[in-house]
Design a protein around this nucleic acid. Structure first.
Length: 166
DNA sequence: ATCGTCATATGAA
DNA sequence: TTCATATGACGAT
């Protein structure tokens, strides 16, 4: 029951090519466009299931890149995370487009008000940025915090949603 | 405004 | 058990 990826598929957008990783359970990771183009690989012939998932992923990514909430998400394979991490990721999922929360708010929402720092750790371990909107989590006082894909991406994504940093 | 320090939870080695 | 961390609060500067 783990997230062994069986297919890597590209998502071409006007800001670069994302790479979606699929396991037998669903989408298990999403990479930001690398500086250098990478050749998409495919370990196994694509099943209809995976093509369908990829269609949903592609639509979701494109919606998010123009500031809209995706209509539908593919199944997400979060089996790489611990219980705590999955709890954090699930909680972040509820953050609506255009709004932000703090690490402390997430910590309280999952019933561990003191685990603020651990929430940061879970954000960093989020395998599916964008669809799991960790870019909408800021530090206290409106500070930017960090971002695994690079702070430039975090700024850009927030700007797309109408949130401008001072 | 920035910096150092401390408290604290979690995860990886 | 030890170390690192995408935090936060507080006090000193």
């Amino acid at each position: 029951m783990n997230a062994a990826p069986i297919a890597l598929l590209p998502i071409v957008t006007n800001v670069g090519t994302f790479t979606a990783h699929y396991s037998t359970q669903g989408l298990c990771a999403l990479d930001f466009p690398p500086a250098v183009k990478r050749k998409p690989t495919r370990a196994v012939p694509l099943t209809k299931t995976i093509r369908d998932w990829h269609q949903l992923t592609t639509e979701a990514v494109k919606a998010l890149l123009v500031g809209r909430t995706p209509r539908e998400l593919p199944p997400l394979d979060l089996s790489s995370g611990t219980d705590f991490q999955r709890r954090v990721w699930e909680e972040m999922t509820w953050t609506p487009c255009g709004e932000t929360r703090s690490y402390a708010e997430i910590a309280q929402a999952i019933g561990r008000p003191k685990a603020v720092r651990a929430v940061g750790g879970a954000c960093g371990a989020n395998p599916i940025p964008l669809l799991i909107p960790c870019h909408r989590v800021l530090a206290a006082g409106g500070k930017l915090g960090g971002f695994s894909g690079g702070l430039e991406w975090k700024r850009k994504l927030l700007a797309i949603e109408g949130i401008v940093m001072c």
